[in-house]
């Protein structure tokens, strides 16, 4: 909001319930597409046609490896500041246009490479020869600069 202070919208609560990974991935994709796109666009689904295909959601009752996350995806927006009454209309209007995200991704290299993390990677490079390769694996080189996947 106009005075420039920030009001956080997210909070990490460890120990919350197990999420469905497919739902989580869809939320991430949709949030990124909305938040990182041009501002002042009406929230109209027609402007972001999305083909989800006929994906089957697999529920898994198997053991889940709790791999630590090495990224964060929070958000904050410009608020009305302390001491001022929050005008709900203003709040909702600013939420649409002035939501601001702060995020981080720690890439892996051959020294800090953790293959449990690799299996959870969702940013993939399309190899010119075909196949979607996890970003860090595509860029990975040994100490002499020789690539695991990228062809130079």
């Amino acid at each position: 909001m106009p005075d420039g202070t920030l009001n956080p919208l997210t909070r990490h609560q460890p120990g919350t319930e197990l999420e469905n990974g497919h739902t989580g991935a869809s939320k991430t994709i949709d949030f990124t597409a909305r938040q990182w796109a041009s501002p002042l666009v009406k929230e109209n689904d027609d402007q972001h046609p999305r083909e989800t295909g006929n994906r089957v959601i697999r529920e898994s009752g198997n053991t889940v490896q709790p791999t630590p996350g090495f990224s964060f995806q929070p958000m904050a927006f410009v608020s009305s500041g302390a001491g001022q009454p929050v005008d709900l209309d203003m709040f909702l209007s600013r939420l649409k246009t002035h939501m601001f995200s702060i995020s981080c991704m720690v890439f892996q290299d051959v020294w800090n490479l953790d293959l449990e993390r690799v299996r959870d990677c969702c940013i993939h490079v399309l190899s010119p020869d075909g196949g979607l390769i996890p970003f860090c694996m595509y860029n990975l080189t040994d100490a002499r600069g020789r690539s695991l996947y990228r062809k130079t």
Partner: peptide, 20 residues
């Protein structure tokens, strides 16, 4: 892993962002 990338059935996340 990580010698079968493309992706293989051992991968635990679908593609969120594809880079070209």
């Amino acid at each position: 892993c990580p010698f079968d990338c493309g992706l293989c059935p051992g991968h635990r996340q679908r593609t969120c962002t594809a880079l070209l």
